[in-house]
């Protein structure tokens, strides 16, 4: 019975036989991630996931070739040991950064005595974007939205459909029943003809 280590080294060797960015390499690397994701060091800190994400990137870049650092050497250590070492170094960096930030926050609040927690908990009002969109659709200044209609259904316009689908959204099934048109036809119309208008509106309003 093969050990996990042997199995891994076999897959790594296979992966490295294929060029970077090739479908084969992508598949083999995925398989390795799948096998070792549960074997890596775990801890319950706020930045753990960020450190792990960086570790996976490091893995992809250095398992075969030396992209950022010295490439993985199976003679030296198992891939799990190799990655855990990197992960712990990243966690250490985050820990130090976090401590530094905590000290800075403490210093600032000591200086001006303001309560930072108070500032953070001030909730913004429900943003007006929904109102702006509603207004834009209802006004329909140049009758654009009301002139884009579903084929054979001049009564179903983008203006109507957008308004009905703004939160709280009318369910597709309800609209389908009401208008006697299949959900698929309605959603296709919505995606192809109405969403582009909203997309442009978002761009023109500088929301992006």
């Amino acid at each position: 019975m093969e050990t996990l280590r042997d199995q891994l080294n076999e897959i790594i060797a296979e992966a490295c036989r294929h060029p970077i960015g090739s479908v084969a390499r992508q598949k083999y690397l995925t398989q390795i991630i799948r096998l070792i994701a549960n074997e890596l060091w775990k801890e319950n800190t706020l930045y753990y996931e960020d450190a792990l994400q960086q570790t996976w990137i490091y893995f992809c870049n250095n398992i075969c070739e030396s992209k950022t650092c010295k490439a993985y050497d199976p003679e030296q250590a198992s891939v799990i040991t190799w990655l855990n070492a990197y992960l712990k170094r990243r966690l250490q960096d985050f820990r130090l950064e976090n401590q530094k930030q905590q000290t800075q926050i403490k210093q600032i609040s000591e200086i001006d005595g303001s309560n930072l927690v108070e500032q953070q908990s001030a909730k913004p009002d429900i943003p007006p974007m929904l109102d702006e969109i509603k207004k834009w659709v209802e006004t329909d200044e140049n009758n654009h939205l009301s002139q884009i209609t579903l084929k054979n259904h001049p009564n179903i316009t983008c203006q109507m459909l957008i308004l009905r689908r703004l939160p709280p959204e009318t369910p597709w099934k309800t609209l389908s029943c009401e208008w006697g048109v299949s959900t698929s036809t309605l959603s296709s119309f919505y995606q192809r003809r109405c969403l582009p208008c909203l997309r442009e509106f978002g761009r023109s309003q500088g929301y992006l």
Binding site: I133, R165, L166, G202, Y207, L208
Partner: peptide, 11 residues
């Protein structure tokens, strides 16, 4: 589209 705030709201 998932990064467009208007489309997130409307779909």
């Amino acid at each position: 589209d998932s990064q467009n705030p208007v489309l997130r709201l409307c779909a």
